[in-house]
Design a protein around this nucleic acid. Structure first.
Length: 718
DNA sequence: AAGGCAAATGTTTTT
DNA sequence: CATTTGCCTT
């Protein structure tokens, strides 16, 4: 047994964590301390030294990306892909269990997963059925309430009735929502976890089976677990299985979403003799950056306690820049990035982090003006985009003609003359006969007015025809067929503006995803597996884009990433810490952890910037510099002032956008030769607007004239 | 069914 | 301020 390859490259603390013989372990892993490395090596150790088979190991992560990375790194380390190991997200694993044991879980075999949008739709339907006042209790609030309860492991029946009208209304909705989901075989994200937990409680023999099977559980990002996730783990582990929990209380930033930082402490009490290992040596940042990070986080009370250190260089001081306003701040950042690139560095090594998405626009505009390519993280996820969801709804309908949600979604998408009245009639018929909308449509089609009747008949025939291809075609072939036959692709092709073009590109990307898809179970049809995975997948595939672009993202989405050069923008009171979080002290501490997360993303150089005046939501505000800045030891912080006389008001008077002005800053000139990935070569004919929504009209040699958004078009100057 | 208009609304986000 | 949503009109 060659143990050396597993522990040789590790530091003492990592080694202790990896080779521990104790059944329960807590690894407090500071930012950049080799957390994933420890998890991966621990798994290798369990297999190669303690003799566990992959089959006996369960590894839980928070995101699909993390799960994927862990799998890859295990394979790299041990030299082959471990077969039979369960590595996945809480939701993914719960889904897997429920799929296998649907009967025991009280679900129909083909239950559907609801994403946030689907869930809201169901809630709105419940409102209609209950005659609930959507003005008084916004459906979003009900959705929030339901999810909050589910995160805590509470069903409607568990919640105490209370006299206050809010609770009364919410409970009524929650009850009706549960019924609607049960009737329709619908499972939301929280429900996956709740059912998986109940599966353990209600089916002891099943629990026993898995406790027998798994010998060790590894949990990543333990500080992000919510109550129901922890409960699920706790029951499964019983006092039988070993467990390695890895997390960092200082990086807990999802409390507002139900994450319970207390789970870390609970773990040490709920299990016997939990040994704690601290990983404090940081391999990412300079000593200077770590000093700043430690300074900030030390202001929080009740920490489990960790101090990051490095044996590396001090590196450069942090720079603080006070912009005159947000434009100036953005310009400063852009210029520093230009300097960076001029020195031969990669744009993709630069990240601009901010507290809230609203800040991104000004930054984008500045980058656009300076012709610096950038990429924004976050926003709408791939599989949540309208066109993608519509395409998936067609596919779902092919799998199951009685999927009402899918039916409703596509019956008149693209529009084919089936209006609200007709659909309402189908709903009524379906309800009266206790049947699906599809079944109702099949019978009711004869009784409809001629025009609607023809339209419905056409729709039914189209879907039936497609369904015949379902078995014979490959996944991408089928999707391609669906997009063509349904008219969906054509519909978006015709949609004017660049919006349609992006949608068409996304649909093409969907076909690519289908082509590349490898079903976990090759023996059963790929489509259902693909659909389920899509709902549970944020679609980070696009994130791994290879273009060299500056990365813009919120502080939240930066967690887990690292960049040589980092900018934290908007370091102002009310913005960061956000004013919404000032009331409760717990919230403020979470903001501080967010700041700590931000600082520790930086490897070499960190800029902190703020604006003395900021225009936000149409209001001019004068915010003081963030209190977090004052928590940074002054000896590591240097204030930057650029040629002060130039940087004052006059140069920032907003120029009114005149027609001739347009196009400036786009990086392109009228008549310029450009190249597009899909459309080939062309010439720029005109501009419209600027900023992220700035558009260019391009006359392509082969494709004719098109308008496109600069941000998406990725035009290349020739 | 599409387009126009007023009103609401604006932390953070994975699954 | 700017974007999204719902509602109304054609």
């Amino acid at each position: 047994m060659d143990v050396t390859s597993i522990i040789d490259s590790l530091n003492p603390a990592q080694r202790e964590a990896v080779s521990s013989a104790d059944p329960y372990q807590l690894v407090l892993a500071g930012a950049g301390s080799g957390k994933t490395r420890v998890l991966v090596h621990r798994i290798a150790w369990l297999m190669q030294v303690e003799g566990l088979s992959p089959y006996q190991i369960l590894a839980v992560t928070f995101t699909n990306k993390a799960a994927r990375e862990m799998r890859e790194r295990i394979s790299d380390l041990i030299g082959f892909a471990p077969q039979g190991m369960w590595v996945g997200t809480f939701h993914g694993l719960a889904h897997r269990l429920l799929k296998m044991h649907w009967r025991d879980a009280g679900l129909p075999e083909g239950f559907q997963i609801l994403d946030a949008e689907d869930q809201l739709r169901v809630i709105k339907r419940v409102y209609a059925a209950l005659n609930m006042d959507a003005e008084k209790w916004p459906p979003r609030q009900a959705q929030w309430y339901i999810n909050e309860q589910k995160d805590e492991g509470l069903r409607a029946a568990h919640i105490q009735q209370s006299p206050d009208p809010f609770t009364v209304a919410m409970l009524q909705i929650y009850h009706a929502y549960e019924e609607a989901c049960q009737r329709g075989g619908l499972v939301d994200f929280g429900e996956l976890l709740l059912r998986a937990h109940e599966l353990w409680l209600n089916k002891p023999e099943l629990l026993a089976h898995y406790q027998d099977r798994f010998q060790h559980i590894l949990v990543d990002e333990f500080q992000d677990t919510n109550s129901i996730q922890y409960a699920w783990l706790r029951v499964l582990a019983g006092n039988k299985l070993g467990m390695t929990a890895v997390g960092d209380d200082d990086q807990s930033i999802y409390g507002w979403r139900g994450a319970k930082i207390e789970n870390i402490q609970n773990y040490t009490h709920d299990f016997e003799a939990v040994t704690t290992v601290r990983l404090e040596q940081n391999y990412r940042s300079t000593a200077t950056i770590l000093k700043a990070a430690n300074g900030v986080i030390s202001q929080n009370a009740n920490r489990l306690g960790k101090t990051l250190w490095t044996d590396g260089q001090d590196g450069e001081l942090l720079s603080l820049y006070a912009g005159f306003n947000e434009q100036d701040e953005a310009r400063f950042i852009g210029e520093r990035i230009q300097d960076w690139i001029a020195k031969g560095n990669m744009r993709s090594d630069v990240a601009i982090l901010y507290r809230s998405n609203a800040q991104s626009r000004i930054l984008e505009e500045a980058l656009l003006r300076l012709q610096i390519p950038y990429r924004i993280y976050g926003g709408h996820r791939f599989y949540e985009r309208l066109e993608i969801k519509n395409a998936l709804a067609y596919l779902r309908l092919l799998m199951n003609r009685h999927d009402d949600a899918a039916f409703e979604r596509v019956i008149n998408t693209p529009t084919r003359g089936i209006g609200d009245k007709t659909v309402q009639r189908l709903r009524d018929t379906a309800r009266a006969h206790q049947q699906s909308l599809w079944a109702a449509a099949e019978t009711e089609v004869e009784n409809l007015p001629a025009r609607a009747s023809n339209a419905v008949r056409g729709f039914l025939a189209m879907v039936s025809e497609l369904a015949e291809d379902y078995q014979s075609l490959t996944l991408d072939g089928l999707t391609d067929q669906v997009l063509e036959a349904s008219g969906l692709l054509e519909f978006y092709r015709r949609e004017k503006g660049e919006r349609g073009q992006t949608r068409v590109e996304n649909l093409e990307e969907l076909i690519n995803a289908c082509r590349a898809y490898e079903a976990p179970d090759p023996d059963s049809p790929a489509l259902p597996q693909f659909i389920d995975e899509a709902v549970l997948d944020a679609g980070e595939r696009q994130a791994e884009s290879d273009e060299d672009a500056v990365q813009l993202m919120t502080l939240h989405s930066a967690k887990g990433l690292e960049f040589p050069l980092v900018f934290m923008a908007g370091m102002e009171e009310n913005l960061f810490p956000h004013k919404m979080s000032l009331e409760e002290s717990g919230r403020l501490e979470e903001e501080r952890r967010l700041c700590y997360v931000g600082i520790t993303r930086a490897m070499e150089k960190l800029y902190l910037t703020y604006a003395e005046t900021r225009r936000l939501y149409g209001q001019e505000s004068f915010n003081r510099v963030s209190r977090f800045i004052r928590d940074i030891p002054s000896e590591v912080l240097q204030e930057v002032r650029l040629s002060a006389n130039v940087s004052r008001p006059t140069s920032f008077v907003k120029k009114p956008a005149t027609l001739s002005d347009e196009g400036s800053g786009s990086g392109f000139a009228l008549g310029q030769q450009v190249k597009h990935k899909i459309f080939g070569e062309g010439v720029i004919l005109s501009f419209e607007g600027n900023g992220p929504n700035g558009r260019v009209q391009v006359n392509f040699v082969n494709e004719g004239t098109k308008w496109m958004v600069l941000q998406y078009a990725k035009l290349q100057a020739l």
